Computed example of a mutant assay.
Amino acid sequence: MLRDGRTVRNGTETFIEIHRREYKSLPSPYIAYGNQICIDDTGYSFVDCKRKCFNEMLKKECSCTMNPSPTGNETYCVDDYHTNTCAAELYGAILQSSTLCVCPPECRVIKYDQVLSSVANKNDFQSHYLKIRIYLKDLSTTVTEQVPKYDGVTSLLANLGGQMGLFLGASILTITELLEFIIFIVWTVIQRRAKGKNAVRHIDI
């Protein structure tokens, strides 16, 4: 509601259909939302982080604040915010820049899809009024959840074994036989060297 506003015209009856969506991402060390690390904290809010950052920049750049304390001497810059002055220009710069007020996203995000449809009122009396009907499409929620590709060593070994079997034709039995063959070769070399040393000692005696 804070970021996804809608504009409707007077003299119409507007229907707003809403569907609830929930996105669950994994915290660090996993990467969420493309190339970012999300914050898994119920007390954290992306909107509050942006608001606090904007307010701190207002104090520094415009010498005013959006949240003055009751006992403080801060200047409330609501007038500057609505006119084309310091606060408005700063707000526009924050919207256009990706380096100002960098706030990580939340791991759990709830969004609402909206479908709008309007019908014009033909009655002259009703043309001065606006009627809005907001309703849920259904009582279900579409959940999109991020899961780790490898959930532990077992899944990693299973995937590795499947790739080896697909591209190399290898299996557990093949790898065991290869290890057995290598051990046999090493043992044979050690035995031959030991016999050679014994033969040299026998000749010297």
Results as ranks from 00 to 15, higher is better:
V115C: 02
E89F: 00
Y76R: 12
L90R: 02
C107T: 07
I94A: 03
L90Q: 03
Y76Q: 13
L95Y: 09
A87W: 00
S69W: 13
A87F: 00
L58R: 08
V115W: 08
K111M: 10
V78E: 09
L116Y: 03
Y112A: 04
P70I: 10
L58T: 05
T99H: 06
C86Y: 00
V78I: 13
N67M: 01
C103Q: 13
L58C: 13
C53V: 04
C103S: 15
T71P: 02
S63I: 02
Y81I: 13
F54Y: 14
I94F: 10
D113K: 11
C107Q: 10
T71G: 05
V119R: 13
C62S: 06
T83C: 01
G72A: 01
V109I: 15
P104H: 02
A93Y: 07
A88P: 02
P70T: 04
K111P: 01
V102C: 09
Y91C: 01
C86L: 07
T65M: 03
L116I: 15
V119M: 10
K60Q: 12
T83M: 04
E61R: 14
N67R: 01
C64F: 02
E56K: 12
A87R: 03
N121A: 11
R51Q: 11
T85A: 08
S97P: 05
R108V: 08
D79Y: 01
T65S: 15
V119G: 05
T75E: 12
Y76H: 12
E56N: 14
I110G: 01
V115M: 09
L58K: 02
N55P: 08
K52L: 02
V119K: 13
K111F: 00
Y81R: 12
V109R: 15
K60D: 12
C107M: 05
C77A: 04
C77K: 06
P70E: 12
S117Q: 14
K60W: 04
N67E: 01
P105G: 08
L90E: 00
N55Q: 02
F54T: 05
K122Q: 11
V78Q: 09
L116N: 08
L90N: 02
Q96T: 11
M57F: 07
N55C: 01
D80Q: 14
N73R: 08
Y76N: 15
S117W: 04
N55G: 03
V119H: 05
N84Q: 14
T71W: 13
M57P: 06
E56V: 05
I110Y: 03
N55Y: 14
P105N: 10
N73H: 07
E106F: 06
D79K: 11
M66L: 09
A120M: 03
D113G: 14
G72R: 00
K60Y: 10
E56C: 05
E56G: 09
E61D: 11
P105C: 09
K52T: 09
T71I: 02
V109E: 15
T99Y: 00
K111L: 08
N67K: 00
S97H: 04
L95G: 07
H82L: 15
C62T: 02
C101Y: 15
Y76L: 15
H82C: 09
E56Q: 14
E106G: 10
G72L: 00
Q96V: 08
E89P: 01
R51L: 06
T99S: 14
V102D: 15
T85W: 00
K111G: 13
N67S: 04
A88V: 03
